[in-house]
């Protein structure tokens, strides 16, 4: 009772990384709260799930196995969580901020009347004093997230309602096996007690992997390359950096004209106007037609081997040096300091 719960998201019978990261975080929070770590996996053919999950320190693993429960659809998964949460009364419930977690979480929170905080970047345990009501709350979950377009960081709490629910994006928490020989209990739920035939109201006709169209405008982070990147091959470095940071790749016109990159990626007066949270200009001199399309970016990093490049005048960070050496280092030190 009043334990910490993690919803394990499955993709082809494998627990998603984001869920394993949450199990790791959940284990350490559960130790701090001196409660148990519970987890649930919902899907079909779940024989290997226990071996995958238990080493992360799961005390109780619930499995709901039914052919109709995979792939994910909203209502059956939501009904299982709702009822299980009513039965087990967890104090905290965590799920990935994925297209599944963000579809499921609000549905469950609405049914249980519990607060949900999306996209947390940090989770901590702390106290809260409500001076007006003269109440002190111990051991609340601090749900910390950037708010307001990323310009402020807010700490959200749910003093009264349970479970305290939060979603977290992949890669924010660290995944670490707790104990390879950890013994936890596995409970097979009788799915017919939790879902009814009428719950299967959405049918998945087809699923396939498809690259999304390039959408520079809505990317929070843009890694843009100019003529100074030198070649199409070197542009791959930019794609690598954009990939690890969760951003997109943009380009100057000179880079597009030189054939380093697709026209759809051009930023500037005759390209797209962007206002990302972070703009990394690599080997771009900073002519006015380019600047016009990106000067409102919140933070600008200029990487250029010319210390007097005009782009440096509007940059928050000026790195003087070669694109080829700097980008791999950025990737390396980003990974080192987030994992």
């Amino acid at each position: 009772m009043n334990n910490l719960f993690v919803y394990c998201e499955l993709e082809d019978g494998i627990i998603a990384d984001v869920s394993l990261e949450l199990l790791t975080k959940g284990r350490s929070l559960a130790n701090q709260l001196q409660c148990k770590l519970e987890a649930i996996a919902i899907g079909h053919q779940l024989d290997t799930i226990a071996d995958q999950a238990l080493p992360y320190g799961v005390d109780t693993l619930y499995l709901a196995d039914d052919r109709r429960l995979a792939p994910y659809t909203t209502i059956p998964h939501a009904h299982i969580l709702e009822q299980l949460f009513r039965e087990t009364q967890p104090q905290i419930a965590l799920m990935g901020a994925t297209s599944i977690g963000r579809d499921l979480g609000p549905r469950v929170s609405s049914a249980l009347h519990s607060g949900l905080t999306a996209d947390c970047t940090s989770l901590e345990i702390g106290t809260h004093e409500d001076k007006k009501a003269g109440k002190v709350y111990d051991q609340l979950l601090y749900q910390i997230r950037p708010a307001f377009g990323g310009n402020i960081v807010a700490t959200i709490i749910n003093p009264e309602c349970r479970p305290q629910m939060a979603t977290v994006r992949e890669g924010v928490m660290k995944k670490e096996i707790y104990d390879a020989n950890w013994k936890g209990e596995v409970i097979h739920l009788k799915t017919s007690d939790y879902v009814k035939d009428e719950d299967f109201v959405v049918e998945i006709l087809e699923r396939h992997v498809e690259q999304s169209r390039i959408n520079l405008k809505s990317a929070p982070i843009l890694v843009s390359g100019g003529y100074g990147v030198g070649s199409k091959e070197n542009f791959k470095l930019l794609f690598d950096l954009a990939n690890v940071l969760g951003g997109e790749v943009g380009a100057s016109r000179a880079a597009v004209d030189a054939g380093f990159c697709d026209h759809a990626r051009q930023v500037g007066q005759t390209g797209v106007t962007v206002r990302p949270k972070l703009y990394i200009a690599c080997g771009i001199s900073g002519q006015i037609q380019h600047i016009a399309g990106m000067q409102e970016s919140a933070i600008i990093i200029a990487i250029n081997n010319d210390p007097n490049a005009p782009i440096n005048n509007i940059a928050d960070y000026v790195i003087t040096g070669e694109v080829e050496t700097i980008i791999p280092k950025m990737i390396q030190y980003y990974k080192k300091n987030t994992k």
Binding site: S114, Y142, N151, V153, A154, I156, I157, N158, P159
Partner: peptide
């Protein structure tokens, strides 16, 4: 159910 405990300017 959710309350903002604190906001910090980045």
């Amino acid at each position: 159910p959710t309350k903002v405990k604190k906001v910090e300017n980045v």
